[in-house]
Design a protein around this nucleic acid. Structure first.
Lengths: 202, 202
DNA sequence: ACTGTGCTGTTACCTCCGGTAACATGGCGG
DNA sequence: CCGCCATGTTACCGGAGGTAACAGCACAGT
């Protein structure tokens, strides 16, 4: 009963084919990779969402634990935030396909049809919310702000991380700085630029 | 040649059925709504992505123009940012289904397979980048920061907006404040809370 | 008046997907 | 020896996106 070895084998096969073909891999492909046929997969996982869910749960644990631990590191606040950002970026950098599975749930999901955030990201958002709530004094607006910010920061880092992975505009450390600077209000602190009155010629 | 009226009719039908059934509406359903059959749709739009693309382009224009104009409003920086946030939230509030279509491109898209941001959002991100670049003095890091922040802010507002639409935790104006506060570095400015040594026992 | 051209529309089909029903094995405890 | 249960199979269903081939119809040009 400890971990149901057959299930693990099937998940390993699914993992391989997802790494190779991306999250839209078909059930047939996964079954073939496992050397069997579809109905067995359905017996073990119910439906496709069950399989993908089991697959993501596997990887979510690690990412979530890493982020959570980073959120509780005993550092100055800025350093802690940078540490969290670095942990996330390092994670998605090390295994892009896996992270893509976690962060971009492809299929038409009838359950909660409009979620921007995949389950793994929702958990991260909740973790951030919790950390804000118990580490930072935001007065009576605390609950609303921390919830909003948890989602916001998650979405922000998701989008930024995707873009960074695609285009690699700078090393990771610099990206961490750029994101932390944004959260630290550098957007509001910087000086104005004189308005462009007309497009300069040439 | 001016606007190809037949195409417009078909897009109107597609619009109706998407409003009703969400972005995963089938080609058959759209054809039926238009009172015709599938091959005509394919003659006009090539494939499903073509149809959805044409449909989104229609609505993207409005949203993009609204955001762009808000970004160039002659206000104090904080007020300008709040204005942009309010414009976006008001837009997604007024027609959620349409904006779900714009912001969450459901299908397995082989083109640029990992984008967190739909085309409409990519354009918004670029708009924000441009605004930052020509309004704010960020020194030599300007280009990198503005690009990063453009994507980041877009992702942040996307995630926050989705969550807000789903759960409606507060009126729009308050949400605008919460997001602007985050961008203004309130996360870094707030006081520490004393560390919880152990879970209180009630 | 005839014919070509181009758009409108149809029916019928293909492939592939997620998912299921029904049946065939093989090991293992009573 | 007998169930029992998990393993595996083939064959199918409904519905998705997409295509081929054919049928009207309207309007130009000769």
């Amino acid at each position: 009963m400890t971990t149901e070895p057959r299930r693990e084998q099937l998940l390993n096969a699914a993992d391989r084919v997802v790494q190779r073909e991306g999250p839209s891999a078909s059930m047939n492909a996964i079954a073939a990779e496992a050397g069997i046929t579809k109905p067995i997969l359905y017996r073990h996982f119910g439906d496709r969402n069950g399989l993908i869910g089991a697959l993501t749960e596997r990887h979510t644990a690690g990412l979530l634990a890493a982020v959570r631990s980073a959120l509780n590191e005993p550092l100055e606040r800025r350093d802690r935030v940078e540490h969290v950002l670095d942990v996330y970026l390092a994670a998605i950098e090390s295994r892009p396909q896996v992270y893509r599975l976690l962060t971009h749930p492809e299929p038409g999901d009838p359950t909660g049809a409009g979620n921007a955030l995949a389950p793994a990201l929702r958990q991260i958002a909740e973790e951030i919310t919790r950390a804000i709530q118990q580490q930072i004094d935001l007065g009576q607006d605390g609950p609303l702000l921390s919830e909003t910010w948890g989602r916001s920061i998650t979405g922000m880092v998701l989008a930024a991380g995707d873009w960074w992975l695609e285009t690699r505009p700078c090393p990771r450390a610099r990206m961490v700085q750029a994101l932390a600077d944004l959260l630290w209000g550098r957007l509001s602190a910087a000086a104005d630029l004189p308005p462009m009155l007309a497009a300069p010629e040439v």
